[in-house]
Write a protein that binds this DNA or RNA. Structure first.
Lengths: 228, 228
DNA sequence: AATGAGTGTCACAGAGCCGTAACATCATTG
DNA sequence: CAATGATGTTACGGCTCTGTGACACTCATT
């Protein structure tokens, strides 16, 4: 049975574009243009995923996302936020208000669908604030703290996000592009080689643990965090 | 396997600039100056990506993009739109109907190439990421890792692809040409004997498993991976 | 203004990988 | 058994990729 997607988007052109691609991808689609209508739609039939614009006529998409997170019924609803480019990445990342993912406008339809699919596939939200433990490392998002084998590690901001991203998918080879997308955000123009430098900085930061080669290089592929 | 890029741009100076940078980045380039010519070019040889100017003499680039999206053959074609700065972001955002990304003029060549690279990478098809197990070997595409009887094996990039290809069709005799096509890609000019060398390297890589003759030679035929 | 941390980019060197040639060995055929 | 062709094995030059240190720039704090 096809998943249903609720699109909350003011601008008709974008709403139509998104709806078109979702339909084409085989999903059932419902479009509303304001938060008020969105509430009704959610009450009426719980969708599997909400594509939510950041800027809406009656209320901020963020507020609506917060609101959804508070309600038990919609607490685990997958939310994909649409943001304007002006809304800087850091801002968005800093405000992480419960959206499971976000896409900046203008977006590629292909990318949008890919992210929707990804969200629907994994029920578990990845940006949880729960501590992660992998390979003897412990990362606490809330406290912004990393420790390995009991000792606390000094990890810079970028390295922290990099490590978090790697730990969220241990044992999996991440291409430099994937890391750029996941750690720095899409639509950012940074040399791929820059990833190498931050990987080095991360490795140095992880040295006090004693374990070396926690972050492995896959030649021609990217990097991978050892699971154990 | 260089990707081919079709540039649809009226202004000669810009067309040349873009073409130059694309060529320099190793892509095959074709330049046309109007939508009419672009249609022919697409019909003749499907490009991997189109750099499309917003303003064209005979027809709007947007209309052409819409047109491309409707055709099944070109539905998933990567489109990078070039827009004048005058066309303000909001306008672009609103009207954006199928371009995968866009760059405003004047643009930095670096950014342009970065975006092109990103688009082409994203367009690359992802083959199944499920682990394969054959003859005591376990190959995990996502982790880019091979293990035999519990021990991890050190396998180079080409050998990895070779093994993956063989494991995906166990017990089946693969000619050297089939291996070249499947592992190296079609239309690659490489000596068939090179396959032999990589098969040897693969055999060496698989030695730690204890089992020998996992990769069998079929005289006059090619190679085959034993199923068990 | 000075300082220091954080970041992105670059250049260089070394390591690893690749395709090929050349020679050795094996299988098949007569 | 000799001849012939196919395959195994090794070595090597060239090239790509990665590690690493240095540097400039920004931003916040002093």
């Amino acid at each position: 049975m096809p998943a249903t997607i609720l699109i909350v988007e003011d601008e008709p052109a974008i709403a139509e574009l998104v709806a078109l691609h979702c339909k084409h991808a085989g999903y059932t689609v419902k479009v509303v243009h304001a938060v008020l209508d969105a509430r009704d739609a959610v009450d009426e039939a719980l969708p599997d995923l909400i594509v939510l614009d950041w800027m809406l006529p009656d209320k901020s998409g963020i507020d609506f996302a917060r609101e959804l997170r508070k309600d038990d019924r919609t607490k685990d609803l997958a939310i994909l936020m649409l943001t304007a480019r002006a809304a800087e990445d850091d801002k968005v990342r800093g405000l992480e208000v419960g959206a499971d993912d976000y896409v900046t406008k203008p977006f590629s339809p292909k990318e949008l669908i890919a992210r929707i699919k990804a969200l629907l596939r994994r029920a578990a939200p990845e940006s949880s604030d729960e501590p992660i433990e992998v390979a003897g490392l412990r990362l606490e998002p809330a406290a912004h703290r990393v420790s390995g084998n009991g000792t606390e590690l000094k990890v810079g901001p970028t390295e922290f996000r990099l490590l978090r991203f790697l730990m969220s998918r241990p044992d999996r080879v991440m291409t430099r592009q994937a890391l750029l997308d996941g750690v720095w955000g899409d639509h950012v123009f940074i040399e791929e080689r820059t990833v190498d430098v931050h990987v080095r900085r991360l490795r140095i930061a992880l040295e006090p643990t004693g374990h070396d080669a926690l972050v492995e290089t896959v030649r021609g592929g990217g990097y991978r965090l050892r699971k154990r």
